[in-house]
Design a protein around this nucleic acid. Structure first.
Lengths: 121, 121
DNA sequence: CTTCTGAATCGACGTTTGTCGATGCAGCAT
DNA sequence: ATGCTGCATCGACAAACGTCGATTCAGAAG
């Protein structure tokens, strides 16, 4: 698995004038762009991770404690593993509060993925 | 790999009054929904497939002959294999015209994925 | 300090995936 | 028919992935 930091994700790189993410219709992706962008799609390309993500996204404030979302039919270590992947992909952030760890949706990154798929032109 | 037909994809199922795809923020996905939806994200979760997809999407008319997009650094059978996966996921359609096979973006399906990631509420 | 609970890491495993060369098939054009 | 070209399928194999139980770590509470 790739170990990109959030700051390296293509969708967050541009503070430029143009909108951050040209849709996939605008021009072919370079190999490097594809490599980095695929990490985000791959992160959502697993059923368990999709459920975890939607559990968090649909929770109040777009964030949830791990203990609130652990009932997805896999073991606790597996849940932890998937949350880590979503976090590594830049789709979630996490924060420890006392005993519990809260995961939260990273709105800009997700919006950027959505923009990539906007095929209008 | 799952073998869902396009008609089985959740994003195309609802001809109902509500917009076809509630964003992931609206409610948690069921196991079955997640299973089917993940197929589409997984399809774009590979660098080569992302490049192929953007090559087709950015081509005139949102379609391209295989011969136009085969230069992505992998062998011809591998290109064929990836195009099949994108097609099985419902993201592309294909049509043979004489000697050549043309692949085309399935706009509704892609728009639906985009809608899933629309986190406004 | 010890204990308890929630979450992360480790090590191992079977399965899936991406890739290739070889081969097969479809549709032209000799 | 024969050959040629574009694309799909097959079989094989290494690498990556999802999963688990066991263990470790962090923080709170006795």
């Amino acid at each position: 698995m790739s170990n990109l930091s959030v700051s390296e994700l293509p969708v967050l790189q541009s503070e430029s004038a143009v909108p951050c993410c040209p849709p996939l219709t605008e021009r072919p992706l370079s190999a490097e762009e594809a490599e980095r962008t695929a990490v985000m799609f791959k992160a959502l390309g697993d059923p368990v991770r999709l459920r975890l993500f939607s559990l968090i996204a649909s929770h109040e404030g777009g964030e949830a404690c791990v203990c609130d979302i652990s009932d997805v039919g896999v073991s606790q270590p597996t849940v932890s593993h998937h949350l880590k992947k979503l976090k590594d992909a830049g789709l979630l952030t996490s924060e420890r509060r006392a005993t519990w760890v809260y995961y939260k949706v990273a709105p800009e990154v997700v919006a950027s993925m959505s923009a990539l798929l906007d095929l209008r032109r």
